[in-house]
């Protein structure tokens, strides 16, 4: 199960999420979304600590964060 999920089609690539990520695992995908932006992505899901900082700063609310219980 993914811990952090991005709605890629709605991302505007502003980079506020990547800047606050304490684990620095957010990067911008090479692909281009329908709005013409490189969407923010996380591949290393196991490194995510579910802190939610990325979602707190995301102005477009495209991030959902989950935590293992």
């Amino acid at each position: 199960m993914k811990k952090v999920i991005f709605k890629h089609d709605e991302c505007k690539g502003c980079g506020l999420c990547a800047a606050v990520c304490p684990k620095k695992i957010i990067f911008f995908d090479k692909s281009i979304n329908p709005n013409g932006f490189h969407p923010a992505t996380v591949d290393e899901q196991d490194k995510c600590i579910s802190c939610g900082f990325c979602a707190t700063m995301c102005p477009d609310l495209i991030i959902t964060v989950r935590k293992e219980v």
Binding site: M1, K3, S50, G52, A55, T56, L61, I63, T64, V65, R66, K67, E68, V69
Partner: peptide
Amino acid sequence: MKTVFEKTKGLT
């Protein structure tokens, strides 16, 4: 898995 952050219901 517990959701710790998702878009609020207060927004469309």
